[in-house]
């Protein structure tokens, strides 16, 4: 039987005129890797801060492990580990002492703490950097230290707020593998990001936020199935005449065609051989192209279809 770890009901948070969270709802079950996806400013971090009682909210209800979450619920806080978006460590302390401090905020016993700190260091692969101060670490290693500080006390619920921002691919993979490993060991994860690929890769349940609202949720496949778009045919072609763009809109199952920067994107709803129809059109009209391929819809397409704008457009 599933157990609800976090439950957010009708959460409202206002900053004067701005409504950051607009009757927001969310339910996270034990053992899930829950992805909170949305563009910058969509309310992801505000939601996390409200769950952690770092922010007061105007209305709504937040329950963690079935109990109402308040700033003074230290018993509940003990079960939560947080990896914040910005690296929060002491510049004056080395890697070991930093993890020891943050672990020590939860674990009083010295021996247990020592064991946990060593395990956290091993988990994030910082064994060779124990005596290094944060300023001597690269961006990726610093992020790993930040994660170690958040998970060293072995929490049941781990909240990771955009932990891979400005991280090199190698460190990013290491972090994502680590999150999956933590989940395998029994931790429930809340993972916020605006990187769709990451969310798709590791999350078992995804919630898409926009303007403080829950706009869609489900597994990655469920979300993709919920939209009209089933396939995108992409053609890299130079100097394509507008009349061809218009003509392709009339092909079977095609509902939208866009031509920008020598790239033609043909969105299809249903149909089995959409790419063949496009290739045939190019052949019939003696048109040359560099490359043609087909893609299944991404979470960005889901977001685009639901909100009318793309995640990346909003970030820009």
């Amino acid at each position: 039987m599933s157990q609800t770890v976090v439950e957010v009901k009708n959460l409202v948070k206002r900053y004067k005129e701005l409504i950051a969270l607009d009757n927001f709802n969310m339910k996270i079950e034990k053992g899930e890797v829950f992805g909170l996806l949305g563009p910058n400013g969509s309310g992801k971090t505000t939601t996390i801060n409200c769950i952690l009682s770092l922010l007061n909210y105007n209305n709504g209800e937040i329950k963690v492990f079935g109990e109402e979450m308040k700033n003074t619920r230290y018993d509940l806080k003990k079960k939560i580990g947080v990896v914040m978006q910005d690296v929060a460590v002491f510049d004056e302390l080395n890697v070991y002492d930093n993890i020891d401090y943050f672990c020590g905020l939860y674990i009083g016993d010295k021996e247990t703490r020592k064991k946990y700190v060593e395990e956290a260091i091993e988990f994030v692969g910082l064994e060779n950097f124990k005596k290094f101060r944060p300023k001597k670490l690269s961006g990726g290693l610093l992020r790993r230290l930040n994660i170690a500080c958040g998970i060293a006390h072995k929490p049941e619920l781990i909240i990771l707020d955009e932990p891979t921002v400005a991280v090199d691919p190698q460190s990013r993979n290491k972090i994502l593998e680590g999150i999956t490993e933590l989940n395998r060991k029994g931790a429930t994860i809340i993972y916020t990001s605006h990187y769709m690929e990451e969310v798709e890769q590791i999350c078992t349940h995804i919630l898409i936020m926009d303007k403080g609202k829950n706009v869609a949720e489900g597994t990655s496949d469920e979300l993709k199935r919920s939209i009209k778009n089933t396939e995108n045919v992409i053609v890299d072609v130079r100097n394509l005449d507008e009349k061809h763009v218009e003509a392709m809109k009339k092909l079977n199952h095609v509902y939208e065609v866009k031509y920008m920067s020598d790239r033609l994107v043909i969105k299809c709803a249903g149909g089995r051989h959409n790419i063949s129809h496009v290739i045939d059109y190019f052949a019939d009209n003696n048109l040359d192209y560099d490359r043609i391929y087909s893609e299944l819809p991404t979470l960005n397409d889901v977001f685009l279809e639901i909100t009318g704008t793309s995640l990346r457009d909003q970030e820009a």
């Binding site: 770092l54 230290y74 806080k77 003990k78 947080v82 914040m84 929060a88 002491f90 510049d91 905020l105």
Partner: peptide, 18 residues
């Protein structure tokens, strides 16, 4: 000041230490 920086303070504030 170091203990009071926003990041450290918030990070400590969400812990189980009153």
């Amino acid at each position: 000041l170091r203990f009071g920086t926003m990041l450290i303070s918030r990070r400590t504030g969400i812990s189980s230490l009153p």
